[in-house]
């Protein structure tokens, strides 16, 4: 793509800006900031990736993954402020999901163990895991505060905190996984996934692009399940004390 063609893509930024101004949506500032940020962030990451790919040094790959996990953790933790140690719980979840998933991919030599594969796939794993964590925390905290009487009921009848939060945990895990599962049901029929589309546009064989996309689709399913379940089981005990009492300030 030429720089002229690239600059013409700004038309797609002008359209929402004009619509926002005309309809008084008040989104001009946010749209402008989002545009500037995406230009700077993507250009920066492009140069960083070029450097990492060229150097092929393991330490840079680890640094990139650490940066992704750190940023994703800081973003997701805002939704779980009522849960003690949420930062470390999210970081641990993202790291575990990344290690397990990459362990399978690289262990079975599904893709070559090079930065060119590891980093983009890690980005998708960690990004998806972050979104799942946010969806899970949002739903779990809402479920807990909406059903605190049921939690109290089960505790009062001699149930453990795990039994008392079982229903809320299952609801939140299911709700957070539904978007991933539903979007995969219509994949290829309604939307062509970004990675596959990118490969096809860049001139790759569509069948090759589909094969990689299938890998990503399956990875996203496993990251979705692992993220919400890990985070769920790390989170619920912090809502209770050692006498199995609800910590009121957490609900």
């Amino acid at each position: 793509m030429s720089y002229l063609a690239l600059s013409l893509t700004l038309i797609f930024v002008l359209i929402p800006l004009i619509l926002s101004k005309t309809l008084n949506l008040g989104l001009e500032k946010d749209t402008f900031i989002a545009t500037v940020r995406s230009i700077i962030q993507l250009l920066a990451v492009g140069y960083v990736l070029k450097f990492v790919f060229d150097s092929e040094h393991l330490i840079y790959i680890f640094l990139m993954i650490a940066l992704m996990i750190g940023t994703a953790t800081l973003n997701a933790r805002k939704k779980g402020k009522s849960i003690d140690g949420i930062t470390w719980k999210i970081a641990f979840t993202l790291l575990t999901v990344e290690v397990l998933t990459q362990g399978i991919i690289l262990g079975f030599q599904i893709v070559p163990a090079t930065a060119q594969y590891i980093i983009p796939i890690s980005g998708m794993i960690i990004g998806n895991s972050m979104v799942l964590s946010i969806l899970f925390l949002n739903r779990f905290t809402a479920e807990m505060s909406a059903h605190r009487d049921q939690v109290e009921l089960i505790l009062s009848l001699g149930g453990t905190p795990k039994q008392a939060t079982h229903h809320q945990l299952i609801s939140a895990i299911k709700a957070s996984m539904i978007p991933t599962i539903e979007s995969q049901k219509t994949i290829g029929l309604v939307q062509l996934p970004g990675m596959m589309s990118g490969q096809i546009i860049a001139g790759a064989d569509p069948i090759q692009a589909v094969q990689f996309q299938l890998l990503i689709v399956f990875i996203l399913l496993t990251t979705a399940a692992m993220s919400s379940i890990f985070l769920g089981f790390l989170s619920y005990p912090t809502l209770f004390n050692d006498r199995m009492q609800m910590l009121k300030e957490k609900f």
Binding site: D149, S156, L157, T160, R243, Q245
Partner: peptide, 14 residues
Amino acid sequence: PVDLRRNVGMALQS
């Protein structure tokens, strides 16, 4: 706590 609550049952107001 589990044994206590089974031994001291409670019917909640709500």
